[in-house]
Design a protein around this nucleic acid. Structure first.
Length: 422
RNA sequence: GUGAGCGUAGCUCAGCUGGUGGUAGCUCCGGGUUGUGGUCUCGGUGGUCGUGGGUUCGAGUCCCAUCGCUCACCCCA
């Protein structure tokens, strides 16, 4: 019986890693320009942290967490809670009024896997803590859009406001009232949602629910003055920065802590998983977790599996990895010389390979081709004797003698010069 | 948790109403080139047909169970 990776947990293979690195590198470059600092967080936290932040009655906390119940700890299902915990624990609020932080890593949710959804999945998570100014909301979305543009990905940005603890309850009430009149026409899921989370009915996929909800009261009409002003200023700032977006009053969030501005970067190329990045404002959360009072925050997470899937689909060419030198050595003495030489080359920071199996030259040339080497240095008994290797340019097929005099260190230096100028 | 569709070589897949596992393609190894790659050509390695029962003279094929995978619902990044 072969042992396989468990369901929902995937290996990221060498040929896939290039995409992941491209994601991470691009993120780091852009975040640096925006003054966003990296923080690295543990993947295990007290279960209570997630219950208090995400919400005790959400699906994530109720049935999707990987918990060690005997120890009261849980593999994190998302990053925001951990990041805020660290922010509070280390007293970040005294460092500077507005703190920009990001983290990259695995998250865990016990859901049924499908396209773009794994049980261990990876997110790039970014949070701006300590500012409630609408300009910050706009800046955060600009970061997301710039990042996705740099990756040559085509996605759209949709935004909405969920109001705050003052205005949302009123909207909730009027929505329930409206939906109750059409209760019989709602799908089974929405009948259930009507009690548990009525806002969710707004983004139901069922056609009849969608139609019903068109004439439902709009949350944007029931925002309090502060929330309304905040949201319209956010839009002014987005326009000011040239960030393109569309309003979607049906967009809601799955986690309890969100308020005011919410947004999603969407694609139609990933089947059911439309959102490649999503987030929003959570102004009361830090205080709720025991942090300093009146500390607002906003953030979003990008799903790396979804992004790499999109990159595979939308990006045209990938740049192949090139090796610099392959040493094709025939016979024991030549292998000894070659292994010393490639070690010197590697010390100089060059990618160099050799085949220790002492196979036929044809086989070794084939291997050289596989490593995509620029040059192959052929060393046989004759070449050793005459101290003259054959250097083959793999692209032009041109072959020139290469002196095997002095030390391999010296030879490596010669080769480095040659590669630089070629 | 619910529904549907698939499990045959490392990968992609043929395999008809049950009758000996495919010269299949890709990969890998070797020959053609006594010492020269990506193309070509010839040969070779590689399988408990997911697993366990059942029906049958005979099961990759039919039946049952079970495990696994995929997509979708739910939920969410």
């Amino acid at each position: 019986m072969k042992i396989k990776a468990i369901n929902g947990f995937k290996d990221i293979l060498p040929e896939e890693v290039a995409l992941w690195r491209q994601l991470e590198t691009t993120a780091r470059e852009i975040f640096r320009c925006f003054g966003v600092e990296e923080i690295r967080l543990p993947i295990l936290e007290k279960t209570e942290l997630f219950a208090r932040s995400i919400g005790g009655t959400t699906d994530i906390v109720e049935k999707e967490m990987y918990s060690f119940t005997d120890k009261g700890i849980t593999l994190r299902p998302e990053a925001t809670a951990s990041l805020l915990r660290a922010y509070i624990q280390h007293g970040f609020h005294v460092r500077q009024p507005v703190q920009r932080l990001f983290t990259i890593g695995p998250m865990f949710r016990h859901e049924r896997p499908q396209k773009g959804r794994q049980r261990q999945f990876h997110q790039i998570d970014i949070e701006i803590i300590g500012g409630e100014e609408p300009a910050i909301d706009a800046e955060l979305m600009a970061i997301g859009q710039l990042f996705l543009t740099r990756l040559n990905l085509e996605v759209s940005l949709e935004i909405n406001s969920l109001g705050c603890t003052r205005c949302r309850p009123g909207f909730r009430k009027s929505l329930i009232q409206y939906l109750n009149d059409y209760k019989e026409q709602l799908c089974d899921d929405c009948k259930r949602r009507l009690n548990s989370n009525p806002l969710r009915v707004l983004d139901c996929k069922s056609r009849t629910c969608k139609a019903l909800v068109q004439d439902a009261p709009s949350i944007l009409d029931s925002l309090c003055d502060d929330c309304d002003r905040h949201f319209s200023t956010v839009q002014e700032h987005l326009d000011n920065l040239g960030v393109v977006y569309t309003l979607n009053r049906f967009m809601v969030r799955g986690l309890d802590y969100y308020c005011r501005t919410t947004f999603e970067f969407l694609t139609s190329d990933l089947g059911a998983q439309a959102a490649v990045a999503a987030g929003g404002r959570y102004d009361g959360l830090i205080e709720q977790l025991g942090g300093p009072k009146n500390t607002p925050g906003i953030g979003f997470a990008m799903g790396m599996e979804r992004l790499t899937l999109l990159m595979e689909q939308q990006q045209k060419e990938t740049v192949p990895v090139r090796a610099n030198i392959f040493v094709a050595a025939l016979g024991e003495a030549a292998i000894k010389h070659g292994s010393s030489l490639i070690y010197q080359l590697r010390k100089l920071g060059l990618r160099a390979d050799i085949d220790y199996k002492d196979r036929s030259l044809k086989a070794q040339m084939k291997q050289a081709g596989r490593t995509n080497a620029r040059f192959t240095l052929i060393i046989g008994e004759q070449e050793l004797e005459q101290q003259k290797g054959i250097l083959r340019n793999m692209d032009t097929k041109e072959q020139t003698p290469f002196p095997l005099l002095e030390s391999t260190e010296h030879q490596a230096e010669q080769l480095r010069q040659l590669i630089r100028t070629s």
